[in-house]
């Protein structure tokens, strides 16, 4: 009797394991297929890509599609443009947001609570409200078709990151500040030499998140950048698409090659920083 029951339990366990694995495998195949299709299409040529049935691995691998893509748009140049904007924005975001976060977490000044609530409230405001007045403002400053509208706001703090860093600073014991103050250190020095280094995990999360935000930003370059040579990767990729779609026969293989090139940095950073992505998402999300 007990033996029969045990067998039953064993059987149920393996059945459950089998169902779990097969569901996971089927779903992950579905999730992976678009990326595999992207890679595969990027190595076809104009004839083989339209063949029926489709050959996942073409007889001849057309790596030259990647060169063709780079002659249609200067991807190398756009890579440098985007890198410059991204690095500057990350520096600005980390500096300004961590300064403000330190102020909100550590210094007891008048109006702190009200101002912090205001800071949180601006997170809820949809960007569509401010984007038109900001465009008008930057246009009046003569900043259209420069990188200033993309970069300067980063140096003026970002509510989400201020919130994230403040939460982390609050978890660092105040005794560190007190001890340093007794030793005669200034607040700025305490912030820079003690608190900020201790907050490295939170800073890393901010870096990763702002990288993703800026590197993939499409909207701001779209409305502010007009010159072809100043474009970013996303803007350039969209230009390439417009050009190819408008040219008669659609060279999907070239578009796919360009897309692969644009996605490579994303995927590299994803694998380098997967841990931080998950953590950041969970700080952003409410827990329990």
């Amino acid at each position: 009797m007990t033996e029969y029951r045990q067998q039953q339990i064993h059987f149920a366990k393996y059945l459950k394991l089998g169902i779990s694995y097969s569901t996971l495998i089927i779903l992950s195949l579905i999730f992976m297929t678009p990326l595999l299709w992207l890679l595969s299409s990027s190595l076809h040529n104009l004839d083989s890509i339209f063949a029926v049935p489709y050959q996942w691995i073409p007889d001849k691998l057309h790596w030259d599609n990647y060169q063709t893509a780079m002659t249609i748009i200067p991807l190398g140049r756009y890579f440098l443009n985007t890198s410059f904007i991204t690095v500057t924005v990350i520096i600005g975001t980390v500096l300004s947001s961590s300064l403000a976060a330190y102020g909100f977490a550590r210094l007891n000044f008048k109006g702190r609570k009200v101002l912090f609530s205001l800071c949180i409230a601006t997170m809820l405001l949809p960007g569509q409200i401010t984007m038109i007045p900001l465009y008008v403002m930057f246009a009046k400053l003569g900043w259209v078709d420069t990188y200033f509208p993309l970069i300067v706001p980063a140096f003026l703090g970002s509510p989400f990151y201020i919130f994230l860093l403040r939460q982390f600073f609050l978890s660092i014991p105040y005794e560190y500040d007190e001890a340093a103050l007794l030793d005669g250190a200034s607040r700025l020095r305490i912030f820079w030499s003690i608190i900020l280094p201790m907050a490295r995990p939170a800073v890393a999360t901010v870096v990763v998140f702002s990288f993703v935000g800026v590197w993939n930003d499409f909207f701001n370059p779209l409305i502010y950048i007009n010159s072809i040579e100043k474009a970013t990767l996303t803007l350039g990729l969209n230009m390439l698409k417009t050009q190819i779609i408008g040219s008669g026969v659609t060279q999907w293989h070239v578009m796919m090659a360009a897309s692969v090139l644009v996605l490579i940095p994303n995927i590299v950073v994803f694998f380098l920083a997967q841990r931080h992505f998950m953590k950041g998402i969970n700080v952003g999300g409410l827990r329990g």
Partner: peptide, 25 residues
């Protein structure tokens, strides 16, 4: 003064990138 100095980047941003544009919008 210290507190306001620390939050000043955000405060400037709040006035010019959020509050001002909301009213202007």
């Amino acid at each position: 003064i210290e507190g306001y100095l620390f939050i000043s980047p955000w405060l400037i941003g709040f006035v010019f990138l959020s509050a001002g544009p909301i009213v202007f919008s």
